[in-house]
């Protein structure tokens, strides 16, 4: 067996520890070691965004980060988005707008959209489309996804006032 490395990190606010082989990606560690299967593998090459997570405030593809690099990092995944059983406004708006069909790309899109609204509370349609260009969705044609994100942004802005 290859030697496994001990990693300590924070996932969705909780401290976690796991062992991983040196070549293991963060995505595989999340799914296989921590049982967090909400992040999906659609390509393994950073081209589909289904594995999107936020690491130390930065949106990344977890398939393009080694688990070993996660030592000491703060990781946010789809599993941490809702507050208990209360959905995040983005999650709620995705449901209200029917912004998902098969739902496979949805976790990655939601994480990416959250990163967008954290950085830009009032994105234009074009800014939203370009920010989400790394999240492939084959079902929806993006129309309802974009509407849901912009509607959630509007609601979050309202809540801040």
């Amino acid at each position: 067996m290859t030697s496994r490395r001990h990693i300590s990190a924070t996932v969705n606010g909780d401290p976690v520890e796991f062992l991983s082989e040196a070549g293991t990606t963060l995505l595989d560690a999340l799914r296989d070691e921590l049982g967090l299967t909400g992040s999906k593998e659609g390509c393994g090459s950073g081209d589909c965004g289904a594995c999107s997570v936020i690491v130390d405030g930065r949106l990344i593809c977890s398939c393009l980060m080694l688990a070993a690099e996660a030592e000491g990092r703060r990781i946010e995944t789809i599993e941490g988005m809702a507050d208990g059983s209360t959905l995040h406004p983005l999650q709620r708006k995705f449901l209200e707008h029917a912004a998902l069909q098969c739902g496979f790309c949805t976790p990655g899109l939601l994480v990416a959209a959250k990163a967008l609204l954290d950085a830009n509370p009032d994105p234009s349609e074009s800014e939203t489309r370009y920010w989400l260009a790394g999240n492939l969705c084959r079902c929806t044609g993006y129309d309802k996804v974009i509407r849901a994100v912009m509607d959630a942004a509007a609601e979050l802005r309202q809540a801040r006032v």
Binding site: T37, I78, F94, L95, E96
Partner: peptide, 20 residues
Amino acid sequence: RPIRPDGADKVTGKATFGAD
């Protein structure tokens, strides 16, 4: 246009797809 019955699982990452 009701909310889909499987919606909550799909937006929280809990839905079990093939590889899950």
